[in-house]
Each structure stands twice: as C-alpha cells, then as structure tokens.
Deep mutational scan, measured.
Amino acid sequence: TEKEKEVKRLAKERGLSPDQVRELAQRAGFSPDQAKQIADEFA
C-alpha cells in the first residue's frame, strides 16, 4: 500500500532499527501484527 511504502521509505532514510520501524508503522495506523511484518523486513 501507499502508506506501507511511505513507512518503509522513512525507515530506510532514517536508518531505523526494526523496533523503531514497528513503532513508526503503528503510529501510521497499522495493526501490531502488520507493523511487526513490516519491521521484520528490516531485521
């Protein structure tokens, strides 16, 4: 999704850790499970 792409782009730009990616995703409105899946891509 657009929102997911945006979260991943920000995460890459900022060099976020997987935990930070998960927090960012949840703040963007993703469920905890979705946020974990997104964060796992950065693990």
Rank of each mutant, 00 (worst) to 15 (best):
V21A: 06
F42V: 11
T1G: 14
F42Y: 15
V21M: 04
K36R: 13
S31L: 07
A28C: 14
E6K: 06
K36S: 11
G15R: 09
K36V: 07
K8A: 03
A35E: 03
R9Q: 10
A39L: 03
E6R: 07
Q37M: 11
E41H: 06
E2S: 12
L10R: 05
E6Q: 10
E13G: 04
A25Q: 00
E23Q: 12
A11C: 00
E4I: 15
K8G: 03
L24A: 07
R9A: 07
E4D: 06
R27V: 10
D19Y: 08
E41D: 14
V21P: 00
A11K: 02
G29R: 03
A25T: 00
G15P: 01
Q37R: 15
E23N: 06
D33G: 09
E2Q: 10
D19V: 08
P32S: 09
K36P: 01
E4N: 05
K3C: 07
R27H: 12
A39V: 04
F42M: 09
K12E: 07
D19N: 10
P32F: 12
R27L: 15
E13P: 01
E41G: 06
R22I: 15
D19P: 09
V7M: 06
L16F: 06
R27T: 11
A35C: 09
Q26P: 03
K36D: 12
Q34K: 15
K12S: 09
E4S: 14
A11H: 00
E6G: 04
E13N: 05
L10P: 00
L16S: 04
D33W: 09
A43S: 10
E23F: 06
S31I: 03
R9D: 06
S17T: 14
V7Y: 03
P18N: 07
P32E: 10
D40P: 01
V7H: 02
Q26S: 07
K36W: 13
T1M: 13
E2A: 09
S31Y: 03
K36I: 12
T1R: 13
I38R: 01
A35T: 03
R14P: 03
D33H: 11
A35P: 02
V7A: 02
E41T: 09
E6Y: 12
L24K: 01
Q37P: 00
R14E: 09
D33A: 15
R9P: 00
R22M: 15
G29Y: 00
P18G: 09
R9L: 07
E2W: 14
T1C: 14
K8T: 04
K3H: 07
S17R: 10
K3Q: 11
D40V: 09
K3W: 12
S31A: 08
P18R: 12
G29I: 00
S17F: 07
F30D: 02
A25S: 03
Q34C: 08
L24T: 02
L10F: 08
D40L: 14
R22W: 12
Q37L: 12
L16K: 02
R14G: 12
L24M: 09
L16E: 01
T1A: 13
E13W: 06
T1I: 13
K12C: 12
R14Q: 15
E41S: 12
A25E: 00
S17P: 04
E13Y: 06
Q26W: 05
I38C: 00
R22F: 15
A35V: 04
K36M: 13
R9H: 05
K3R: 14
R9N: 05
K36T: 13
F42A: 04
A25P: 00
Q37A: 14
K36H: 10
F30C: 04
I38S: 01
R22G: 05
R9G: 04
E4W: 15
K5G: 07
A39D: 01
A25Y: 01
V7W: 05
G15S: 08
R27N: 13
F42N: 03
E41V: 06
V21H: 00
S17V: 05
V21T: 06
G15T: 04
K12I: 09
A25G: 03
Q26F: 08
A43W: 12
K8M: 09
G15N: 13
D40R: 13
T1Y: 13
G15A: 07
V21N: 00
Q34M: 11
E41W: 09
E2V: 12
E41R: 07
T1L: 14
E4V: 15
V21C: 14
S17Y: 05
S31D: 11
A39Y: 03
A25K: 00
G15D: 09
S31Q: 06
I38L: 11
A28T: 07
K8S: 03
K8L: 14
L10Q: 09
R14Y: 15
K8V: 09
K3S: 07
G29K: 00
R14M: 15
Q26M: 15
Q34F: 07
K3I: 11
E4F: 12
A11Q: 00
R27I: 13
E23W: 08
E13H: 06
E41P: 02
A43D: 08
K12P: 01
E23Y: 06
E2P: 09
A25M: 04
D33S: 13
Q34I: 10
R14T: 07
V7D: 02
V7T: 02
Q34A: 12
Q34D: 08
Q37T: 10
R22D: 05
A39M: 06
K5L: 14
K3V: 11
P18A: 12
E13A: 11
K36N: 12
F42I: 13
E41Y: 05
Q37E: 07
E6L: 14
V7P: 00
P18F: 13
L16Y: 13
E23I: 12
A39T: 03
Q20N: 03
P18Y: 15
A25H: 00
R22L: 14
E41K: 06
Q26G: 05
E2R: 07
Q26R: 12
L16C: 05
G15F: 05
R14I: 08
R27M: 14
A39S: 06
S31W: 04
L16I: 03
E23R: 08
R22S: 06
P32Y: 13
K3A: 13
K8F: 08
E13V: 10
V7N: 03
P32K: 08
R27C: 14
A35R: 02
R27K: 14
V21Y: 02
K5P: 01
S31M: 05
R22V: 14
V21F: 02
E2H: 10
E4Y: 15
G15Q: 12
P18H: 14
F30T: 00
D33F: 07
D33N: 08
S17N: 14
A11S: 05
Q20F: 04
R9T: 05
K12V: 09
P32R: 08
L24V: 04
S31F: 04
T1F: 14
L24N: 00
A43K: 10
A25V: 02
D40S: 10
P18Q: 10
R9W: 04
D40H: 13
Q26Y: 09
K5H: 10
A11F: 02
F42H: 05
G29Q: 01
E4T: 10
G15L: 05
E23P: 00
S31T: 15
R22N: 09
A43M: 12
R9K: 11
R14L: 15
E23H: 10
Q20W: 04
V7E: 01
T1W: 13
R22H: 07
V7F: 10
R9S: 05
Q34R: 15
E13R: 05
A43L: 11
S17E: 07
A39W: 03
L16N: 03
F30E: 00
E23A: 11
L10K: 07
R22Q: 12
S31P: 12
E41M: 08
F42D: 02
S17L: 08
I38F: 04
Q20M: 06
S31R: 05
Q26L: 15
L16M: 09
Q20L: 06
E2N: 10
K8N: 03
K5N: 13
E13C: 10
Q20T: 03
G29H: 01
G29M: 01
F30Q: 01
R27D: 12
E4L: 15
V21L: 12
G29T: 00
A11G: 13
K3P: 08
R27Y: 10
V7G: 01
F42W: 14
E6S: 05
K12F: 11
A11Y: 03
E41A: 13
Q26V: 15
R9I: 05
A39R: 02
P32G: 05
L24W: 06
A25I: 02
T1D: 13
A43V: 12
A39F: 02
P32W: 11
L16A: 05
E13L: 14
E4C: 07
A28Y: 15
T1S: 14
D40G: 05
K3D: 06
E6C: 13
F42K: 01
I38H: 03
D33L: 12
Q26H: 07
R27Q: 15
Q26E: 15
P18D: 05
F42P: 01
A25R: 00
L10V: 12
A39Q: 03
Q20H: 04
E13I: 14
V21Q: 00
E6T: 08
E13T: 06
I38V: 04
R27W: 13
V21W: 01
F42E: 03
E6N: 06
P18C: 01
F42R: 03
S17A: 10
D19A: 14
A28V: 14
T1K: 15
K3T: 08
R27P: 00
